[in-house]
Design a protein around this nucleic acid. Sequence first.
DNA 1: CATATAGTTCGATTGACGTCGAACCAAGGA
DNA 2: TCCTTGGTTCGACGTCAATCGAACTATATG
Lengths: 120, 120
Amino acid sequence: MAAPATVPCCAPIAREPISESDAAEAAVLLKAVADPVRLRLLSMIGSHAGGEACVCDLTGAFDLTAPTISHHLKILRTAGLIDGERRGTWVYYRIIPEAVNKLGALFTPLGDAAPVLLPA
Amino acid sequence: MAAPATVPCCAPIAREPISESDAAEAAVLLKAVADPVRLRLLSMIGSHAGGEACVCDLTGAFDLTAPTISHHLKILRTAGLIDGERRGTWVYYRIIPEAVNKLGALFTPLGDAAPVLLPA
DNA sequence: CATATAGTTCGATTGACGTCGAACCAAGGA
DNA sequence: TCCTTGGTTCGACGTCAATCGAACTATATG
């Protein structure tokens, strides 16, 4: 049998030294997520029914003012982790799965994380 | 046959809202890794022959002074991502696989990342 | 003991980040 | 048209974080 070309050993980051530019790129994504509020926002958006959440669904969960929540959402959006769309009175945010997968791929052995994120 | 109890859909963080305390805990880990220098340090340590790297192997790769590298290593160590040990003249750092796996588990679908990190 | 080398700790500086209040824009009724 | 509600942008403030030079600790060696 064909021996596996690469032994499935460690997380990609622990297999070979990450390049300077890859590190910079990954750090942007990680910085966006390295905050308790943004982590919860991301999680609340991703796990909300229909795959999207209105800002009004989010603010209530925090002891923070609306501008602050908006600020954090903007950071997540700028990093490419979420996308927002206005429909009538409300603004709805949705997760961008590829960006989340990029994060997982950094630290997870056996690279191929399931490409599925939304059932259809 | 028994249907899978949970459909392997999305990253854990996108399956259900992360708790406030879990978010805080994860953010500590993520903050430690959300820096290009520390990301590269972690990667260089993890991918170095023997699973450990001397500080002297690391400093040369950066345009930073020794105190700064030491500072970043301390942050990684405090976060529980690496461990350091002095042997004679040099100090050797090693990755703590469980911590890295925790990071991967946050963003990777199908939870069970391979438990293997070092061949033995 | 003196000296050299490897790393860390300390103190200071500079820039980035999280937060808020106030002002502003967008949409939907009276 | 005016008012209300939902969100964002702006400006400012306080805190934290990255970096450096200088001083310090630890080990080895002459």
